[in-house]
Design a binder for these strands. Sequence first.
DNA 1: TGCAAGG
DNA 2: CCTTGCAGTAATTTC
DNA 3: GAAATT
Length: 357
Amino acid sequence: MDARRRDASPGVSWPARGQEPPRVRARAAHRHGCDPVVPAAKSAVRIGGRDVTLSNQDKVLWPAEGYTKGDLVKYYRSVAEWLLPHLRDRPLTLQRYPDGIDGPSFFEKQKPCFTPEWIATVKADASYSNGASKKIEYLLCNDEATLVWCANLASIVLHIWYSRAQSLDSPDFAFFDLDPFDCTVKTLATVALELRDTLEELGLHPLIKTSGGSGLHVVVPLRPLYDYDTVKAFGEIIARQIAHVRPKETTLERSIARRNKGTVYLDYVQVGRGKTMVPTFGVRARAGAPVSTPLDWSDVQALARKRASDPEVEFARFTMKNTPARLKREGDLWAGKHWREAKLEPAIKKAKRLWNQ
DNA sequence: TGCAAGG
DNA sequence: CCTTGCAGTAATTTC
DNA sequence: GAAATT
Ligand SMILES: [Mn+2]
Ligand SMILES: [Mn+2]
């Protein structure tokens, strides 16, 4: 299927193949000294000893805000110090928007053929459950130069595995994906707190962030000792328990048509080998250029007391524009002592004792 | 989007 | 140096 | 084979 129409906004027809918007080539040469400096179509930067060629830095990717590809590159560069630790050694999927957020996008897992040789990669089996054994050579974004190179490809959204190259089959966190289905922030936050209390009861210490969209991501750092099946099974046990305790506010129904409005979809299916999530400080291809941002649990408690409001609107306050300053001011809320790696066996044992038989 | 080909 | 045209880009799980 | 998800 052609992705060309899939991601374009409803009602907006995007030009067919070969009819994309003309590429502007502004020229920096042959201008008078007093003329305004027009950004060159191509430029080069040296980052950590690597030369990265940048192209079309003035191309607008967010039409409403006027944010350009140059702004995206500048953003990822400025948050590299805090973002890179989250990306390190994780197979990376790019979601590229060459014509901006209103145009079509495509995912890119296999390293492009023109990838510089200095970018780190890892080969991984494409499929795990079925027999097929196609190898994909994934990019690893381990330094600022690689991050900038990726951003220059109009990779607005980054997607990462839950495991790292050293232990590809063992996630180093359990992931709980909370997707609001037409529900309020109050409901979403209430469910998130129920999840937190449940995990704490099992001796685990979850962290929480916005997804950058309308949802929340809850994460329990783990020692990479368990395979994807185990971590997914654990996630399912928890999801079913939350759904049991909060039947009115949650759903486990994957089919949108069959979901009840006003609920939170507990998406435990989104855990597995080859599945991905948007990393902390990753940008989303949405209006306002929102950014996935760590929250304090006290923030979530405040949200649970708030009167009805739209999660997407609420979380839209964390953006590509204001995140660099926040990071320089406050750093990564998850950093340091917050990242305690847990073991899963005691939690599974306790969960069975509390809820089973 | 990058890039090869052609002018 | 510049313009034009072309190739190519995901995978998992559920229903 | 389509839908939903990232
Ligand atoms: Mn989600
Ligand atoms: Mn989801």
